Simulated assay, not measured.
Amino acid sequence: MTRWIALLRGVNVNGITIRSADLAATFRTLGYADVRTVLASGNVVFTAPGDASVVKADVEQALRDRFGYDAWVVLLRHDDLAGIVEGFPFPSGPDRHDYVLFASEGAALDDLLADLALDDTVERVARGAGVVYWSCPKGSSTDTTFAKRAGAVRFKRTTTTRNTNTLRKLL
């Protein structure tokens, strides 16, 4: 049995509303154990047997069947998350938001960072193992250069972003 974290893309935004209780129940119907949702932004911690690709496919299909939307999930092992959070490379501060962008396909991260010109006095971006770390000023998480690139339609099915505070709650 493996402890997993499913990060759902696009939940409780753009008209896709899923209550946490319904989300947890969906994971339980798959036979998964120790199911816990965190916040209302599509974060699920659970235990399940099997290969990551099988678990991911099962979760995405269950979400499509139950909630009728084009579900895309980034799945990672719970044990890997602590290292990701600890690896955040930028200093935190009360005037900044710290994020980690996850991808279900490594090539998406390469595309995301390709030819990206940033003003590092405003925002900082660094590649990590299977993630991109991002720090930006509070209040600007939708209008910086990187925010606009990450929000592009071409990354919708392969990436999702979480604040480091949220990630700590998943541990």
Rank of each mutant, 00 (worst) to 15 (best):
R77C: 09
G83R: 05
Y133Q: 14
Y99F: 14
R162C: 04
S141G: 13
T159P: 06
T17G: 15
V73L: 02
D119M: 08
A129M: 03
I18P: 09
L101P: 06
A52Y: 01
L81T: 11
Y133C: 01
V45G: 00
T142D: 15
T29K: 06
S53C: 02
V85Q: 12
T29D: 10
L75M: 05
S140G: 10
A21S: 12
S140V: 11
L7M: 05
Y99K: 04
L7C: 01
K56T: 07
L171W: 05
V74Q: 00
V35L: 01
E123Q: 11
A57G: 03
S104F: 10
R149F: 06
E123F: 11
A33T: 09
W72T: 11
L7I: 01
V13A: 07
D143F: 06
L170T: 05
L8W: 09
Y99T: 00
A57Y: 02
A25K: 01
I18W: 10
R9D: 15
L167S: 08
D119F: 03
L101N: 11
T2F: 12
S140Y: 14
R124L: 13
T159H: 04
V44F: 02
R124Y: 14
L101W: 07
K156V: 13
T161R: 06
D119S: 08
G151A: 12
D120M: 07
N12Q: 11
Y32Q: 00
V38E: 04
A40T: 12
G83L: 08
A126G: 05
Y69V: 12
A57M: 03
K138A: 03
T145C: 01
K156N: 14
A129R: 15
V122H: 10
V55D: 02
V153M: 09
P137T: 09
R64F: 03
E123Y: 06
V122R: 07
D80E: 11
F102E: 08
T166S: 11
V73E: 00
A117N: 14
R77K: 12
R19F: 03
R127Q: 04
D51V: 04
T121R: 07
D110V: 03
R3W: 12
A57N: 02
F155A: 09
V54T: 11
R36N: 00
S41P: 09
G93K: 13
W134Y: 11
D70L: 07
V153E: 14
Y133N: 10
V100A: 06
D95P: 07
